[in-house]
Design a protein around this nucleic acid. Sequence first.
RNA 1: GGAGAGAUGGCAGAGUGGUCGAUUGCGGCGGUCUUGAAAACCGUUGUACCGCAAGGUACCGGGGGUUCGAAUCCCUCUCUCUCCGCCA
Length: 423
Amino acid sequence: MLTLAAIKENPEDIVRRLARKQFDGKEMIAKIIELDKTRRASQAELDSSLSQLKTLSSQIGILIRNGEKSKAEEAKSSVASLKEKCASLEESMKGAEKEITELLLNIPNTPCDLVPDGTSAADNLVVKEGGRIPDLCDDALPHWELARKYDLIDFELGVKITGAGFPVYKGKGARLQRALIDFFLDNAREAGYLEIQPPYVVNAASGYGTGQLPDKEGQMYHCNEDDFYLIPTAEVPVTNLYRDVILQESELPIKNTAYSACFRREAGSYGKDVRGLNRLHQFDKVEIVRIEKPENSYAALDEMIAYVQTLVDKLELPWHILRLCGGDMSFTSAITYDFEVFSAAQKRWLEVSSVSNFESYQANRLKCRYRGEDKKTRLVHTLNGSALALPRIVAALLENNQTPEGIRIPAALVPYTRFDIID
RNA sequence: GGAGAGAUGGCAGAGUGGUCGAUUGCGGCGGUCUUGAAAACCGUUGUACCGCAAGGUACCGGGGGUUCGAAUCCCUCUCUCUCCGCCA
């Protein structure tokens, strides 16, 4: 969530920035500033009343010890009204505090200056592109046909044992999955990321820490019995490793990577978007997460983008990078770059990675700080990115590399698949 | 699933109603000594909020209660550990 300090420093600027994210925060910001005044006034008075109360109480203790019973009783009665006052002041303080938090939780992050204006995906900016779009013959098959033809993925079987969006991978299809995961993790390690194996199920506190809650409550699978959530991305458990942590400056930057299965309810999706591997309820992804000093976070973001680019290049896929416009960004992000690869038979771009800087927005919820040279604690900046999500990579690999002889595997991946063609 | 024990500062571990935000040890930081280091010794060392400051307040797993006063007593929830059972 946004920091109260930032809001108080320049509320007009915050409102203006939120508007770029198609969010009207005028009233909420004004309300927060008003509540903050109430809170501070209440605390000041409460603190001094509590101080009096403490003094009186210790005096009573002394009186009782000295056997001055009547004086003690007298003092006791004078405490009563003070206590009532404290109770109401505390109520006012805590009430204001709670309301402030409630409001803050429901205000998205502000976009940074680089973010282009716009209201939808159509306004996203293509900032870079690479690779070559293959010329496929007219009878080229979409990946779901190829998956059936070579018996790589069985969507119907997934429907039988679970439901739509839970495919079953078989044979070389399954081996391709495993190879890609290994390939991505190896590359991340070589780029300096520490591999983490996190739980796939988290508690509500973790959901709030990274901002899935309360914003995306309905998008996560929930285990009622234990009040756990299935992770929609490894970002959640990995970033939450640093919840309520004060890091030493020397520990930064932190670079973590994790493979996990990801679970998303994807309520409200339909049509061609969900065909084949385009959108699943369960999918595999390797994530990279960084914890940075604020002054370094944008350099780190650039480094992450450059890193993801090496992956799509090694996989010989045609790609481009979008800088998302204000209206298309996620709730918690200050800036997001999406990588899309071209799926040549479907003739459409598919998002395979999303790299974001959250600045201090997540850190503020997580209470993840670092101690600088001056011994003061400051919020860190958090960043993460997919590196990469598997299903759409597989879709593009299958479609783009189809030949009459079979599906060719890019050279960089062959050491991992240990086969160079699917036939 | 059954039975029991426990949750205190970075860690270990005291504290069972009144100067306890908390003894002590380890670790960390600063210093003395030393050519340097180690050892020894001395000092220092939680977080957040309010306040221009002086200073004040809150926090001993979470929530509630008793009391003039709670880390300490009561209730409740959560979590952890041990033993038994079951089991990849």
